[in-house]
């Protein structure tokens, strides 16, 4: 030991030739096996996720099949949903799901773009971060809280808006159905609040990555702040806006509890396309009918509805990813 330290000193004399060099040992010492084992474990965890996804799709499909086999009406084109009578048609649910999400998108998308522009282009640097965090907090609030707030606090105050829009009742979407609260419109407004932070986060991300050179080029041309945004930030961020919107839409389509609490159940009757009527989305209908999961056939009907919802959100999210990836590549 001591000899080594002496040897290491800079001015030390060359060490006397050391003892015969021990043989090299470079062959496997078991580490390779531990390495393979660990890799296999992580790979197995990856496999678990893959299997999980397959199981989700598989179980829903297999367990939904018996219900679809006894369905007396066309699953995709009928309005009737009468579980005891074996009539499963999803048109009403699909309509409610799509319209409530559409209302949410119409409100949330421009707002989210505005918020993202404010945070990235207008807010002073020091303020931008905390403000962005505050908007992110919106996304953290549980949907059941949005639900009770929406139906107990917000919906009554939306009455006048609804009445004002309802004066244009010759538009089928704005027809007066005699509902006070719990309409598709109420649900859509609350959903808009819920998806706002999702779209904002994605849009903010791409706006922030606008190439500085482009911004400076626009400013050098004497463009105003708005012109700079129109000429550089918005074109650059288009794919981000679209993919953010698709992500928000995916969330809106699948939202369960907020709509379960907010939407009034419509009475059986003729179809109304109005936004000012109640309705049931795929998710809210499944949630409110857990008590009906008594026989495999009845449960199967709801599983089939769940499968459609899964497919819908899958497609929307896949499009969002595809657009985002294309945007990244460009």
């Amino acid at each position: 030991m001591a000899a080594r330290v002496r040897v290491a000193a800079p001015e030390a004399a060359p060490a006397p030739d050391p003892a015969p060099v021990p043989p090299l040992r470079l062959t496997g010492s078991g580490t390779a096996r531990a390495d393979r084992l660990f890799a296999a474990v992580t790979r197995g965890a990856g496999g678990f996720v893959v299997v999980l996804v397959l199981l989700v799709a598989g179980f829903l499909a297999v367990k939904a099949a018996p219900a679809l086999r006894v369905d007396r009406v066309n699953f995709l084109t009928s309005r009737t949903w009468d579980v005891a009578g074996h009539r499963f048609g999803i048109v009403d649910m699909l309509w409610a799901t799509v319209t409530v999400s559409a209302v949410a998108m119409v409100i949330a998308l421009p707002l989210a773009v505005g918020v993202a522009l404010f945070i990235t282009q207008y807010a002073p640097r020091r303020l931008a971060r905390p403000v962005a965090h505050v908007v992110d907090l919106l996304a953290a609030i549980p949907s059941i809280v949005y639900g009770i707030w929406g139906i107990l606090v917000l919906a009554p105050l939306l009455r006048p808006v609804q009445d004002a829009l309802g004066s244009a009742h010759w538009i089928p979407l704005f027809g007066n159905e005699g509902y006070s609260t719990g309409t598709i419109f109420d649900g859509g407004v609350v959903l808009a609040v819920m998806i706002l932070p999702i779209i904002t986060a994605v849009a903010r991300d791409v706006f922030e990555r606008t190439p500085v050179a482009h911004l400076e080029a626009a400013r050098a041309l004497g463009a105003t702040r708005w012109e700079t945004i129109r000429l550089t930030v918005l074109p650059h961020g288009r794919s981000g806006i679209v993919s953010g919107a698709m992500l928000g839409l995916g969330r809106a389509l699948g939202e369960t509890v907020a709509l379960y609490l907010i939407l009034s159940k419509p009475p059986a009757g003729p179809f109304s396309p109005s936004l000012f009527a109640g309705g049931e989305t795929f998710a809210s209908k499944i949630a409110s009918n857990a008590a009906e999961f008594s026989t495999p056939t009845q449960t199967g009907a709801y599983l089939a509805a769940g499968l459609v919802l899964f497919a819908l959100t899958f497609v929307v999210n896949a499009v969002a990813r595809w657009i985002a990836r294309r945007g990244d590549a460009a």
Binding site: L24, T27, G28, S29, A32, D35
Partner: peptide, 20 residues
């Protein structure tokens, strides 16, 4: 070759090589 032994030979453990 490290002292005549091929470190890319089949049964060599790269971890042991890096230790040396």
């Amino acid at each position: 070759l490290l002292d005549g032994e091929d470190i890319y030979a089949r049964d060599i453990d790269p971890v042991a090589v890096r230790r040396t």
